[in-house]
């Protein structure tokens, strides 16, 4: 039986398959709590968790906050836009000051890849990466794995396509690490300008033909088109993107009947995904959101639940 020994959750790259399975198994036990009339257990009573967000976020921040509250931890949320960061305080100083207030965990989102690793080395409290630059978004990766296993009953042997802006996507990286470790086959698809060079070294296949890819996969995860990228001319137009890489009924011709469609949100309806599919029976997008809370509860519990050190 695997036992959790880490202080932090920084990415899926550094976890082994057993650790990932432990988190997903634990999350399964936590899912039921959110369906109770009293959606709360006393497990993390007296623990303090700080949400430190240097980028805008609704879903992830709310999800972490609800996960903490359902475990009875106290939470504080800090947005960079309303904090002393604007006065020029460094990340290290901000973190040390927060830690001096005797907190137990910092959950951080930061635009720079690697910022949470630096934070984890700076403070002795636990650090959870809630997304850093184009590096990793481990809890999103974990909730994707959880949702795939819930819908398909397994992960090993499945073919999973990740479609869209791979270059800038931390979700894609966490998904790739997690899926590969648990034995799935990963196919990336998207505009060549948004495909990182040498990405095949991660053990994935690359294709530029969405229709072909859709014929063989069990799961498709559509990434959000980051609209600000269009201005940097990384692809000619949103319309062209939608035609070549947008998922709609027509593209699904020849796809497996039990295909699962995922999206980390927020969706650009009509660009990467047509509205009828987003709300259709194959879509598990809202299940992902529900499962996100269970997965984050599991992560908080494993990091703060049973340690003396």
């Amino acid at each position: 039986m695997t036992v959790w020994k880490r202080k932090d959750l920084l990415g899926l790259e550094t976890l082994d398959a057993e650790e990932i399975k432990l988190i997903i198994d634990t999350a399964e036990s936590f899912k039921e709590i959110s369906t109770r009339e009293i959606k709360k257990v006393p497990t993390l009573r007296g623990r303090t968790i700080v949400n430190l967000f240097f980028e805008p976020s609704t879903r992830t921040r709310t999800s972490f906050e609800l996960a903490a509250k359902r475990l009875s931890a106290d939470t504080v949320s800090i947005s960079a836009s309303t904090s002393s960061v604007l006065k020029g305080e460094t990340l290290k100083d901000t973190a040390r000051n927060i830690e001096a207030m005797k907190i137990d965990m910092i959950i951080m989102r930061h635009p720079c890849s690697g910022a949470p690793d630096m934070l984890a080395k700076t403070i002795s409290s636990s650090v959870v990466n809630a997304g850093d630059g184009a590096h990793e978004h481990p809890t999103q990766g974990l909730l994707d794995l959880f949702t795939i296993r819930e819908k398909k009953g397994k992960i090993e042997g499945l073919k999973v396509a990740i479609v869209g802006d791979i270059l800038h996507s931390r979700v894609a990286r966490s998904d790739i690490w997690g899926l590969k470790k648990l034995g799935a086959e990963v196919i990336l698809c998207g505009p060549p300008t948004l495909m990182p060079p040498e990405i095949e070294k991660m053990g994935v296949r690359v294709s530029y033909d969405l229709r072909e890819v859709m014929k063989e996969v069990d799961v498709v995860n559509l990434l959000r088109v980051q609209l600000e990228r269009e201005k940097r001319n990384l692809f000619p137009s949103l319309r062209e993107y939608a035609v070549l890489f947008g998922l709609n009924k027509d593209v699904l011709k020849g796809a497996k009947k039990d295909l699962v469609i995922m999206h980390p949100g927020p969706i650009n309806r009509g660009i990467e995904l047509s509205p009828d599919l987003a709300d259709g029976p194959c879509s598990v997008i809202l299940d992902q959101v529900t499962n996100g809370i269970a997965v984050r509860m599991a992560v908080l519990f494993l990091l703060l639940g049973g340690h003396t050190s």
Binding site: V3, T26, S29, E32, I33, T43, G305, G306, H307, T308
Partner: peptide
């Protein structure tokens, strides 16, 4: 019932207990 999440010794025990489902 799985009572792990309600234990009063979670911070005192060295090893992380495994949480199972309550049904």
């Amino acid at each position: 019932l799985d009572i792990t999440l309600y234990r009063d010794d979670l911070t005192a025990i060295a090893e992380q207990p495994v949480v199972h489902k309550t049904e």
